[in-house]
Design a protein around this nucleic acid. Structure first.
Lengths: 413, 413
DNA sequence: TTCTTTTTTTCGAGGCTCGAAAAAAAGAGC
DNA sequence: GCTCTTTTTTTCGAGCCTCGAAAAAAAGAA
């Protein structure tokens, strides 16, 4: 059963709602906030004057667009960039990136680095992450700023409490409790999230008109990842980050997957699987560790040039993704799909077989209604999602403590 | 964005919470309610005295168990059975059942009937349902009782707003707007739900210690159904009741399914699929319309007696369910499973292949932790879930209304 | 300079929850 | 049988919160 609502939670929740309204709209007036939240003008007035006094909001004094309208002009409110800063950490194959972002969402400092994640020792990998984070925080500390939260996105499976990376394709080391480790080193709260989930979060901020309550982001790269928003909430597993679309079974006892099992969607649609098929190697052959984006583009060009094993490899990939999405749609019903990553550049080769496969599934009845959006570059999305996730955390937990708007209105028997 | 919380919503929510606490615990005292809800004693006292005055709760004056304890004895509160009545309607293959249930959950009247659902006309089917519901309501009206809500459970796919049956295996007719039709005939609000979802709801009320936040109910009968609770909430699709586990793809382009497509889990694990395989018929052969429970039990006995096509058929079923669950677990992580329906009586024949298959999937790493519970009889569960769903609706929407402050309730006191 | 119009703030009313204290209702002890 | 102790339940005032109405503020229009 859901927890009772205390009297003082009311203010906290409504504070959180006002902050959320300001973050969502850019520079809304008090009247607009009253409209979008449904609270009365008096309440918005009281809350926003509190928030301004606390240095969380500002009255925007930008160059007035001289509204041309009669009456007292609206005063735009905006997030105070100096109210807080957060850190984003993105760890993926052979790559680490850390950025400092201010409260309004602007990147104020960043650092990137190539790493040999596959061959590094456990301590080496952890050390690099911690060092880069500490370096960046030290920079900001010397500038007199306070970092309030660290959001980390990793390729791989994280636990459902967002504390640890459980498994990843980027290194053989497992169960790395990044949250504990980085908190220990910095004293700042940390969450660890799956990269595809952060892509989904980013898409919602970026294109709310398309990605609103229900949608799917599929990452096509060396492996296959997925982030999903259902009924307005980021979908996660019961024990882990979940949504391991790439490891749904496409063909029982089929092709060898990077995870060691057989027949996963990824074993047909991951870069290594397409490469393996195109080179006419056996499905039992061990997957390559990495294939450059350039090589994949070249392979796609060959496939486009004419029929042959290359084209067939992309077709097989489309088939696997199509049947996988079909099974997924049997569970959740069809939803808009964003195709993200290098694989998106070859989506023209993948789509026909994909749609043909979906047509053969329960989701097929709405095949025409299913639309695919293409976004080749995943890294900016991961960063952006990570940023928004961390900032929303600050919004809700630090400036409006105790409230949990996600649980609002839910009370299922 | 979530809607703002108004000041008067506070009381309404806390009223709903108190009612829920009383329904969950049997006969809790005010002190116990304060403990379980986290509200203060004064608040509980105020709310419960309101609810008693309104005739929703009663002070239980049962034969005191003479608590043996010092101090003022606790006064148990209970739901007033006369506060309301609800109707449950269960429509499945060749069978219709209607029951009247009082506010405390006790069945006060029921009626069942065999129907030839497969061959009936659309209007005939609708007419039978409406007639039986109206007959039962008329009975209660003459007894001076007021029915406040009707909950209907149907085999098949319902829409996500719980208004209509979209598709069903029990008749060729589709898109029957049962909610509108029955509301029109009775003037009482109706919801239409998927039967397996109601099984999940029932399991949570029946065994909360096992089925709490995350679990799955799989119905093995002529077709394969599923109800799922994730993070404490009943899982539904974005547009329909969702969770069509039976129509996830087990083998692309494989055996012919009742739905007309190929390779669905159901095409290997539904009664008709097991039967077809056991009789060594082609996988392309059209599914039988119905197979009696007796025939299925006999088939299972033959399979138990020794190796042969019968045993192999059950093995194939286990394999299909296992790979299907494996794919599902890739998305949501492993969770407790309840196996419901006639297929549960043959679970000994199914389980080995099922576990072997799961072992080959992403869910396999926790294979030993996955536990299966057996419940052969689905009908009582469907009724019970339907009952609790409807009663909870009454609890939340009628006695603790969310939006309309003009509602009569409190002024009557 | 004086209306209009629109936004924002102020102010009092009405509710809600909470903690503390009081009242109620039993058993325990003599 | 009477008084003490313990536990549950109710009462009461304090402190918040939201809301509507009215007032104040800040512009353009006349």
């Amino acid at each position: 059963m859901s927890v009772a609502i205390r009297h003082d939670d009311l203010r906290k929740r409504n504070r959180a709602m006002v902050i959320a309204a300001v973050r969502q709209a850019q520079q809304p007036s008090r009247t607009e906030i009253a409209g979008s939240t449904g609270l009365s003008h008096s309440t918005i007035s009281a809350i926003s004057s509190d928030l301004i006094a606390e240095g969380i909001l500002l009255e925007a004094k930008g160059p007035e667009a001289s509204s041309q309208k009669r009456g007292r002009p609206q005063v735009a409110l905006e997030l105070n960039p100096d109210a807080a800063e957060i850190v984003t950490v993105v760890l993926s194959l052979n790559f680490l990136s850390v950025a400092i972002v201010d409260y309004s969402g602007k990147v104020v400092s960043e650092e990137e680095r190539k790493l040999e994640t596959l061959t590094m020792s456990r301590d080496g990998l952890i050390g690099e992450c911690v060092a880069m984070v500490c370096r960046q925080i030290a920079l900001r500390k010397s500038a007199g700023r306070r970092v309030m939260r660290i959001g980390m996105a990793v390729q791989g499976i994280t636990d459902s409490t967002s504390r640890a990376m459980l498994w990843t394709p980027i290194t053989a080391h497992t169960h790395i409790a990044f949250a504990d480790i980085i908190e220990e080193a910095t004293g700042i709260p940390v969450t660890v999230e799956n990269d595809c989930n952060m892509i989904a979060v980013a898409l919602r901020w970026r294109k709310p008109e398309r990605y609103h309550n229900d949608f799917i982001a599929v990452l096509l790269s060396h492996g296959i990842g997925m982030g999903m928003v259902l009924k307005g909430e980021l979908f996660t597993g019961t024990q882990s980050s979940g949504g391991e679309f790439g490891h749904m079974i496409h063909r029982p006892d089929g092709a060898l997957c990077r995870c060691g099992r057989r027949g996963c969607v990824e074993a047909y649609a991951g870069n290594y699987a397409i490469w393996r098929k195109a080179k006419q190697a056996s499905e039992d052959e061990a997957p390559l560790a990495d294939i450059s984006d350039g090589d994949m583009r070249m392979l796609a060009d060959v496939a486009r040039a004419g029929p042959g094993p290359e084209r067939e490899a992309f077709r097989k990939a489309g088939e696997a993704i199509g049947f996988g999405l079909g099974s997924l749609f049997a569970l959740i019903d069809p939803a808009p799909v964003a195709v993200v990553g290098i694989g998106a550049t070859a989506f023209d080769l993948i789509e026909p077989a994909l749609r043909e496969a979906i047509d053969k599934t329960a989701g097929g009845q709405h095949n025409k209604a299913i639309s695919f959006d293409i976004e080749p570059n995943e890294l900016p999305l991961i960063r952006e999602g990570c940023t928004m996730q961390a900032l929303t955390f600050v919004d809700q937990e630090i400036f409006a403590p105790g409230a949990s708007p996600a649980a609002a209105g839910r009370n299922v028997a």
